[in-house]
Design a protein around this nucleic acid. Structure first.
Lengths: 141, 141
DNA sequence: CTATTGTTTGTAACGATTACAAACTGCAGG
DNA sequence: CCTGCAGTTTGTAATCGTTACAAACAATAG
């Protein structure tokens, strides 16, 4: 579906966000946004780029992920203190997390009903509510 | 309330958990469990011990926090990929997190009603559900 | 009191992430 | 087109929290 003008979609996104469409950003954007929702770490995206024959430094991958997050193209997910995940799904939603192999799966926002929540302390607003459902193998010993 | 036999409580906890009651564990246990629920990082607890005149190495603080977690005296809370928090409240509950100053506040389990959740993927069990309510100042610019 | 086994300690090593200065590139204006 | 500048990228050094490790030490059974 994005075969003919492969970068058109990403290019538009970048322009709308006010980020210069550089070779690196276009390539990373394509890896990130083509195909369904993804959860990546900086290292993983860097490897992926290498394998796809795109030369991008790890530093740029970090910069880019943060810039994309800054303009709302990505969302940071904190589930594991060992590494930072970035989610291409920026809609309101939650996550399953399989610690065993560090995998994340989206849970659509409407699948979780939060019936009640206490009020935020005075002077504070709720910026976001994250629900993390941690999973383990059924018959682990 | 714990003035006369200050270490009795912690000593009992350690024995029940099968951990030798060493000077370091008793001292850290006291700092952690005397007084209400607390959220600490390794570095913070280490500083606190120093100030209380207790000599404990940072390595031991890390070891101890993990051992306490292992036997269920503490719970790890992942909210910020920069550092690991340990919570002395091991009951079922959730958290407010104020990113600005890295502060955590408990939300009692009964204050959050999770009305529905999708089933865990086949072969997996839900190990725990963490709800993190991220807060920001009301009129931040 | 002693042997044994579990603990503690200081320090080196690690892994993810950030800082930084130099090299490079997109793009506006001539 | 060419130029110059601001924005980007890059390699690498530095940082930071945490873990690994081996030697010194201490709790407990007997």
């Amino acid at each position: 579906m994005t075969q003919e003008r492969p970068y058109a979609q990403t290019l538009t996104r970048l322009r709308e966000a006010g980020l210069r469409p550089t070779r690196q950003r276009l390539a990373l954007g394509r890896l990130l946004f083509d195909g369904g929702d993804r959860h990546v770490t900086a290292e993983a995206l860097h490897d992926e780029a290498q394998k796809a024959g795109v030369s991008v430094s790890l530093a740029t991958v970090y910069n880019t992920l943060h810039q994309f997050t800054g303009v709302g193209l990505l969302r940071e997910v904190v589930v594991d203190s060992a590494r930072t995940y970035f989610d291409t799904n920026t809609d309101d939603h939650h996550h399953f997390f399989i610690e065993k192999d560090g995998a994340l799966m989206d849970i659509a926002g409407h699948e979780v009903m939060i019936g009640s929540l206490p009020d935020a302390p005075e002077g504070m607003d709720v910026a976001r509510v994250d629900v993390i459902v941690r999973l383990q193998d059924r018959n682990r010993d």
